[in-house]
Nucleic acid binder design. Structure first.
Lengths: 221, 221
DNA sequence: GACCGAATACCTAAAAATCTGTATATTCTA
DNA sequence: TAGAATATACAGATTTTTAGGTATTCGGTC
């Protein structure tokens, strides 16, 4: 590892699934420079262990009894920012990936990661870098791309037009929109005309699809 | 276990993630009546090992190089139906759960399962029953409920009405629908009137939302 | 054979949206 | 300060949908 090749790094494991912990420990024992400082199965115990052992690195699952890994990460970063955190989780859904990224963990990999990648992640993180697995990076990229596309599409629209669209999607007629916004119905009609042109749609159905695809309306599904 | 308390069951493990395999083996070694017959890291090797060792139970991951767990399950069930199969996977998304259920595996649990539940699952399966974890069952129930609701909603509609809705969602006007279906525009108008009444919507926007929510139309998202 | 639902088609009328255009005021930016 | 964009509003006309109704035919079921 960078810079301090004889340093022994203490690693705390937080995970309530013994199968993972056993497998993880077996892997970590093969690493030079790594010492397992402890293992806990919930967030509260993790905090206690951090106070006591002051590990260099916390490897934590997300779903644990009581304090989740997300909450634990936030707490640790606010109280012991020098402790590095690698999230090792089963979940790859977008909500959770986002929350973890917001929580300033230094890494996030999935539990199907091989040993080599895990080892690499730990090295990177202990060497003051970050490590996110490809799946996680892909989720991030997809999300960013999608957001950019929606922003590009909706940036063609003025604030008023966006507002009109949202009210259309809430099933207001043009007259009702006029009343609600204290403007003339003729104004609403002009806005509608402009919206249809700008969004390259040609019917109300097309506009509805545009709105949903660009997060201007929600559908329960 | 039921009936044959002194019988030793041979278990084959198929998983390409060493961390899991180590953890799983550690757990299985604590079980009476269980002997680890082997471990492989891909589907093809699993088939070879089944021929050679004839295990009672195969515990398999889903995502493996080459033959996936789904394909492996199908193959094993078609050639060696007496071999029981427990899928132990990270993925809980609906598509994969469905495929596994169709493939006649005797069980499906997630890799975050605790030891007790894993032990219970194995016992149940070796005792000629099935075992699916709660998360998997919840996915099944949610899917069934959702499908039933959509069926209930759309069962109010006749085939022609459903067809009209789909064409509306493809942005055909009533006149265009009439031309396409070789019927009068008046007929289309009557269908639309009836559709609005039956779906308890009051606007075209409302109808479109109904259609999307009940899988009569798709939105890219 | 009777009955019912689906599909079809039509009627008159009203409401709403859309189309193509012109115009003015306000706000923002260079 | 000028210019551009946005927001507003209006005009007349056309198109489309919606509303509330009646009617006939066909196929399926009892």
């Amino acid at each position: 590892m960078n810079g301090e090749e004889n340093k022994i790094y203490n690693v705390l494991i937080a995970d309530d699934h013994q199968m993972f912990v056993d497998g993880l420990k077996a892997l970590l024992r093969k690493e030079k420079n790594i010492q397992i400082a402890g293992e806990v199965s919930n967030g509260a115990d993790a905090l206690q262990a951090i106070i006591k052992k002051q590990p260099d690195l916390l490897i934590t699952d997300i779903s644990m009894p009581g304090l989740s890994g997300v909450e634990l990460t936030r707490e640790v970063k606010s109280r012991y920012p020098e402790v590095k955190i690698l999230v090792l989780s089963m979940y790859n859904d977008r909500e959770i990936v986002s929350e973890i990224l917001m929580s300033e963990a230094e890494g996030y990999i999935l539990k199907n990661t091989g040993r080599q990648e895990l080892s690499n992640a730990i090295s990177r993180i202990l060497g003051n870098s970050t490590y996110y697995s490809n799946e996680v990076l892909n989720i991030m990229m997809t999300r960013i791309k999608r957001q950019k596309k929606a922003e590009k599409n909706t940036s063609l629209l003025t604030a008023r037009e966006t507002e009109i669209i949202k009210l259309i999607m809430e099933e207001y007629s043009s007259e009702e929109i006029a009343e609600k916004l204290f403007i003339s119905k003729r104004t609403v009609d002009t806005h509608r005309k402009n919206i249809i042109q700008k969004t390259n749609t040609r019917t109300l159905v097309g506009l509805l699809k545009f709105a949903i695809e660009n997060n201007l309306a929600e559908i329960n599904q």
